[in-house]
Simulated assay, not measured.
Amino acid sequence: MGWLTRDIERAPCTVEISHRFESLHAHLRFNNGAVIWPGDEVQVKGPEIMAPFGEIVTEDREAIIVRASKLERLWTRLTGDFEVMELCEFSFSEEVTL
């Protein structure tokens, strides 16, 4: 991998979508042990997965991993903390604002 080049990998994966009262989540597990690093992009191939309320849906898919170049990875590490701080500016509450 060079300073400006990006590599592309294909990886088998398992997608789990939960639409239950106890847990609303979407998880992706790479079945070949692939690891995602800062700046990498992942696209899961196939149609949208919808889980009916109260259920968990699990499907095997293929993921396309676009690896960040060394320069992109460095930039992501340097600026990542600032982006996380933007998330800290928001909060969730039960109060309704009009």
Results as ranks from 00 to 15, higher is better:
Asn31Thr: 08
Glu95Gly: 12
Gly2Lys: 00
Glu41Gln: 08
Ile64Leu: 09
Glu59Gly: 02
Glu62Ile: 12
Glu72Val: 01
Ser93Asp: 11
Ser23Asp: 14
Leu24Lys: 12
Val15Arg: 00
Leu78His: 08
Phe21Ala: 12
Asn31Lys: 04
Ala26Val: 14
Asp40Lys: 05
Phe92His: 12
Val35Gln: 05
Glu48Phe: 07
Ala11Tyr: 00
Gln43Thr: 13
Ile36Pro: 00
Glu41His: 06
Glu94Pro: 01
Arg20Phe: 04
Cys88Ala: 05
Phe21Gly: 08
Leu74Pro: 05
Arg20Lys: 12
Asn32Glu: 03
Thr97Arg: 10
Glu9Arg: 07
Glu9Lys: 07
Leu4Lys: 09
Val66His: 04
Ser91Arg: 14
Trp3Leu: 06
Leu87Pro: 02
Pro52Leu: 00
Leu98Asn: 04
Glu16Thr: 11
His25Ala: 12
Met1Asn: 08
Glu41Tyr: 08
Val15Ala: 02
Trp3Met: 11
His25Phe: 10
Asp81Phe: 09
Ser18Trp: 01
Val57Tyr: 01
Thr76Ile: 05
Asn31Ala: 07
Trp37Gln: 11
Ala11His: 04
Leu4Trp: 11
Lys45Glu: 07
His19Ile: 03
Val15Met: 00
Thr14His: 13
Val96Leu: 15
Trp75Asp: 09
Val96Gln: 13
Thr79Pro: 01
Glu22Leu: 14
Ser18Leu: 01
Gly54Ile: 10
Glu16Trp: 03
Ile49His: 00
Cys13Arg: 00
Val66Thr: 13
His19Ser: 15
Ala51His: 03
Ile64Asp: 12
Glu48Ile: 11
Phe92Ile: 11
Trp75Asn: 11
Arg67Lys: 05
Thr14Gln: 15
Arg29Ser: 13
Val96Pro: 05
Ile8Tyr: 09
Leu98His: 06
Arg20Gln: 10
Gly33Met: 02
Asp40Ala: 03
Cys88Leu: 15
Leu24Gly: 04
Asp60Gln: 14
Glu22Arg: 12
Arg10Thr: 06
Asn32Phe: 01
Lys70Trp: 08
Arg20Pro: 02
Arg77Gly: 04
Phe21Trp: 08
Asp81Thr: 13
Gly80Ser: 02
Trp37Tyr: 13
Glu94Trp: 10
Arg67Asp: 03
Leu74Asp: 11
Glu72Asp: 08
Ile56Lys: 15
Asp40Trp: 04
Ile65His: 00
Val96Arg: 13
Lys45Ile: 07
Phe30Gln: 03
Leu78Gly: 06
Glu41Arg: 06
Arg77Lys: 11
Met85Leu: 12
Leu74Trp: 15
Gly80Thr: 04
Lys70Leu: 06
Arg77Trp: 14
Leu78Asn: 10
His27Phe: 12
Ile36Gly: 06
His25Glu: 07
Asp60His: 14
Glu41Asn: 04
Phe30Met: 06
Gly80Phe: 02
Arg61Ser: 03
Val96Tyr: 13
Ser93Lys: 09
Met1Ala: 11
Leu98Tyr: 06
Lys70Gly: 04
Thr14Tyr: 06
Glu16Ala: 09
Glu9Ile: 03
Ile65Met: 02
Pro12Leu: 01
Gln43Val: 15
Ile65Tyr: 05
Thr14Ser: 15
Arg67Glu: 01
Glu62Gly: 07
Gln43Leu: 13
Ile49Pro: 02
Trp75Glu: 12
Gly39Ala: 01
Arg20Ser: 05
Ile64Glu: 09
Phe30Glu: 02
Glu16Leu: 05
Asp81Lys: 09
Val66Cys: 07
Ala26Cys: 15
Thr5Val: 09
Val15Glu: 00
Phe82Ala: 10
